[in-house]
């Protein structure tokens, strides 16, 4: 038997021709000899974006070294550290800085506790409709946006809001639930919860249920399973979620502005005031850089001590 020869009437499909054309074009634009640099080509847009951000930071750094002259409302020609001295030497900035950091820490802890329970339920629940309901409940407010959500809390928790009206039904006089530190933390935790759950779910999904069953079969109670099995195995997710929640909270503007009643400012609010209220862009820039530095140092410390968690993408640190 002879081998069947190529069919003479075979027609090269059109999409193959198109693909050949694309390949030839790609060879012209990005020759095969450049193949080892292809990875850089893909990362170039992201690098360009980061480069623009760095450029912006350089300009902000330049502004931060120039002092506003209130006779001309122009920045000084010379550089000085006056804005930094003012930022570090003025009580109000230290107060709002401390409030930002402590609120970020508290929000992170509370959010992680709630998010862990929610994510665990999401991962382990057997009924699909319950999982869907949990997802919808989680993400519906997520799509609404921070400002509208904060405004919603103003309506719900206000003196004439739903909560106070409900309390009124059982004879409790209206009470101030808004415009204090607690309201800000509440708003932040509610805002951050979906972020944390999103980052925790992959970590918890990666923990086989059989591991818990095995621990249980060896006599471990659920609290011991939680402490010795679940928590250590979920650590990468907890660190990743914690870092995201902490940095987002540290730099938040809208929730303290809307739910704080003007007396619970974070550092972002103080920066806004300098840029837009007093036109002192130099001081605003100094505060902004100090916030970037503080956030970076804190995140760097967490990286050093605990690693980057899921943010390390499989790397050790």
């Amino acid at each position: 038997m002879s081998e069947p020869g190529p069919k003479q009437d075979f027609r090269y499909p059109l999409h193959w021709r198109l693909m050949d054309g694309v390949e030839r074009l790609a060879d012209i634009v990005w020759p095969r000899s450049m193949a080892r640099h292809t990875g850089w080509l893909f990362i170039a847009p992201a690098l360009l974006l980061v480069g623009l951000l760095v450029l912006g930071l350089v300009q902000i750094a330049d502004s931060s070294l120039r002092v506003l002259d209130t006779a001309t409302f122009l920045p000084s020609e010379d550089w000085s550290l006056t804005n930094y001295e003012k930022a570090l030497g003025t009580k109000v900035y230290l107060t709002v800085a401390w409030r930002s950091v402590s609120a970020a820490a508290l929000t992170t802890v509370l959010t992680l506790i709630l998010a862990f329970a929610y994510a665990y339920a999401l991962v382990r629940v057997r009924k699909a409709w319950i999982r869907k309901a949990l997802l919808i409940t989680l993400f519906l407010p997520f799509f609404i946006g921070q400002v509208v959500r904060a405004y919603g809390w103003l309506i719900i928790l206000g003196n004439s809001g739903m909560v106070n009206e409900a309390l009124g039904l059982i004879g409790v006089a209206p009470m101030r639930l808004l415009f204090n530190y607690g309201a800000v933390i509440f708003g932040l935790v509610q805002y951050m919860l979906p972020f944390a759950v999103l980052l925790l779910v992959p970590a918890l999904t990666a923990i086989p249920e059989e591991t818990e069953t095995a621990a249980g079969s060896l006599g471990a109670s659920w609290p011991r399973i939680f402490w010795h099995v679940l928590l250590p195995m979920a650590k990468p997710g907890l660190i990743g979620a914690g870092l995201v929640v902490f940095t987002l909270t540290l730099t938040d503007f809208a929730v303290p502005a809307m739910l704080g009643g003007g007396s619970q400012d974070f550092i972002a609010n103080a920066i806004y005031d300098q840029f837009f209220r007093t036109a002192d862009q130099g001081l605003g820039a100094a505060l902004a850089l100090m916030l970037v530095a503080a956030g970076s140092i804190l995140v760097g410390l967490v990286f050093m001590v605990f690693g980057a968690g899921t943010l390390a993408m499989g790397g050790r640190k």
Partner: peptide
């Protein structure tokens, strides 16, 4: 007002944020 507004705002904030 122009020359002192920034200082006044800062002082007011210092009292209210304390």
């Amino acid at each position: 007002q122009v020359e002192n507004e920034s200082e006044w705002f800062g002082k007011f904030k210092e009292i209210m944020q304390g």
